[in-house]
Design a protein around this nucleic acid. Structure first.
Length: 615
DNA sequence: TTAGGGTTAG
């Protein structure tokens, strides 16, 4: 009894802390009630709050207790708003906010209330409500509270309203470090990483989270090299990194395909005993998978004690990208056995796995199970995967039928998949239709025009080839410049189309001439027809064979030891010509070449490619 | 007795 009295007088957190489950809490609750120890609203409030904080994923019980209270305290209601803002049902926060407004004891919301409420609005993207809450904040005079301010900056960024975040931020005379960091993250989220860096450079003090926000900002904006450089600068400045920094660093390595740097990061994590959380583990799996070391990816995967749906989806996607379709399907079975619920992303990985090895029936079955078994409505991506699945397997009519029977209107991705299949299986008629649709939906899609012209060229229909070319000029279609990245001794080298800026370009040129000669001796005929054209200025580069992956291969041939595979990451799809050339080079030079393009991995060895033409 | 900023899969 005396211990219960003690607990009722003092924070009941300690009591709730000792409970392993809600059942124990309920028992204690009953005892406290019987002994009249919860008559004091403050004790009651505190008891509820500690339950809500201890069991954020099961708020029903604390909700029930609070709803039975006659006069809940502001403290208790604030805590409930906070707990719900982070829960799966943030909407419920408003219920407790209304309790404050309508309380018989005339409670008035305070700075805590608004800090939590703003978070709820951000969480559920309640844009209009968020604006109302902001107005109420001003009405109550809390707009100068730093916690509320950083919350508003965050909230507007979540809404995609960077200018509103900016406006809030600009009105703060001396923003503190937390608010500055929120602003950096907000800029990065909207793609304005330059302004984020401007703010970062002017921060009087930068802690670990500020560094992490800036590094993540570069990663999110696709500026992976800058992310890695900043990560290294952080270490030079003696800031201790944590698992969040490592996730961003790994993510940068993943995008670059920088396996050596990624391996170094992994070693660094182990050496510094950085805790491998689910997120960090998933980042490691994804890095190894997307850098082409699938064995290591799976090794890390199986070593992870805790995995979530992100981890499983990343591993499955890796297997699909690397061409291990059957293994991808097997992993899906294991995942289900382990009781992990798949989501829509898991199915994208799964369908890709089916596609890459031509498992049409399995793919169709899984696609249908999405809605029937898992209650997941297929999205455009899934439809695109199905078209790809039929198309690659050469079942073009079925692909087309599938598109005609889609619940939603086929999007550019689906037509693109069909067009690609038409190119592979040389179906000019359907290809023409697909590309017309693609151009309608996405008039600036360079790939659509190139694929269409390739289809015409395959059937030697040169008039049409030049028509396509004319249309491109008229519509001002421009290609995203192709860039390839290669890593040599842990250093990342980036080459773009026709890029001569590399310090070793003279050596590269010599190597390319040699490659060209040896290719010709092996029977390679340079493309002299106007087929695989790009646009104007790039045409000249093409004549010299200056596609970025060719430059990178040339550089790799003389920079890397013969036993080391040449690993290249390209931002676009490998072009058909480069694919042919790379197959030949792998034989002529007896080198293993691994190219990751936008879609998948190509392992070139002994004059063959792992994609077996399902390019 | 309740605060605010940084991280993963398509």
């Amino acid at each position: 009894m005396s211990s219960l009295q003690h607990i009722a007088k003092h924070p009941t957190i300690s009591l709730v802390e000792t409970c392993k489950c809600l059942r124990e809490i309920k028992q204690i609750h009953t005892q406290l009630l019987i002994n009249g120890l919860l008559n004091n609203p403050h004790h009651q409030g505190h008891f509820v709050a500690s339950i809500a904080l201890k069991h954020p994923n099961n708020l029903d019980y604390s909700n029930k207790i609070l709803d039975q209270c006659d006069n809940p305290t502001l403290f208790a209601l604030n805590t409930m708003i906070r707990a719900h803002s982070k829960s799966t049902n943030p909407q419920k926060s408003f219920h407790f906010y209304n309790n404050i407004l309508q309380s018989s004891t005339k409670l008035s919301p305070d700075n805590y209330t608004f800090t939590f409420l703003v978070r709820t609005c951000a969480q559920i993207l309640a844009c209009e409500t968020g604006l109302t809450v902001h107005a109420t904040v001003i009405k109550h005079g809390f707009e100068h509270d730093p916690h509320v301010q950083s919350g508003l900056v965050f909230m507007y960024a979540e809404f995609g309203l960077l200018s509103s975040s900016m406006r809030v931020f600009a009105e703060i005379s001396e923003p503190d470090m937390v608010t500055q960091t929120a602003m950096i993250a907000a800029c990065a989220k909207s793609g304005d990483v330059v302004f984020a860096r401007y703010l970062f450079d002017r921060m009087p003090h930068r802690d670990l989270i500020a560094w992490n926000a800036m590094i993540a900002g570069y990663t999110q904006c696709g500026q992976s090299l800058k992310a890695l450089n900043l990560f290294h600068l952080m270490q030079l400045e003696g800031v201790r990194v944590n698992e969040v920094s490592m996730v961003s660093a790994l993510s940068a390595c993943t995008h670059l395909g920088a396996l050596d740097q990624g391996r170094w990061a992994h070693a660094y994590i182990e050496k510094n005993r950085i805790r491998i959380t689910v997120t960090l583990g998933t980042a490691l799996v994804d890095m190894y998978a997307k850098c082409g070391d699938m064995n290591k990816a799976m090794e890390v995967f199986w070593e992870m004690k805790e995995k979530n749906v992100y981890t499983w989806s990343a591993a499955m996607n890796g297997l699909a990208m690397n061409g291990f379709g059957e293994k991808c399907l097997e992993l899906f079975s294991v995942m289900k056995q382990e009781g992990v619920e798949p989501n829509e992303v898991t199915f994208v990985s799964l369908l890709r796995g089916c596609s890459v090895v031509g498992l049409v029936e399995e793919g169709r079955m899984h696609f249908e199970s999405m809605r029937k078994v898992y209650g997941i409505e297929p999205q455009l991506e899934h439809y695109g995967c199905m078209v790809d699945l039929y198309g690659r397997a050469g079942r073009l009519d079925e692909a087309f039928d599938f598109m005609n029977n889609m619940v939603v209107k086929p999007h550019a991705g689906a037509w693109g998949a069909l067009l690609n299949a038409c190119k592979i299986h040389k179906n000019m008629e359907l290809g023409e239709l697909a590309s017309r649709k693609l151009v309608e939906l996405d008039a600036k899609n360079h790939g659509a025009y190139v694929l269409l012209s390739n289809i015409y060229a395959d059937s030697k229909n040169w008039n049409r080839v030049s028509n396509v070319r004319e249309t491109m000029k008229v519509k001002g279609v421009r290609k995203v410049p192709g860039c390839s990245v290669i890593e040599v001794n842990g250093e990342v080298h980036e080459f773009c189309v026709g890029d001569r800026s590399h310090p070793k370009f003279a050596e590269i040129e010599v190597k390319m001439e040699e490659m060209s000669k040896r290719l010709k001796l092996s029977g390679y005929v340079t493309n002299t027809n106007p087929v695989l054209f790009d646009i104007e200025e790039e045409e000249k580069e093409d004549a010299l064979g200056l596609h970025s992956e060719k430059i990178a291969i040339a550089f790799g041939l003389f920079s890397l030891q013969e036993s080391v595979p040449i690993r290249i990451v390209k931002n676009l799809r490998v072009c058909w010509d480069c694919h042919v050339v790379t197959i030949m080079i792998s034989k002529i030079y007896n080198r293993e070449i691994i190219v990751r393009d936008r879609n998948r991995f190509h392992h070139f060895k002994d004059g063959e490619c792992s994609c077996k033409g399902y390019w």
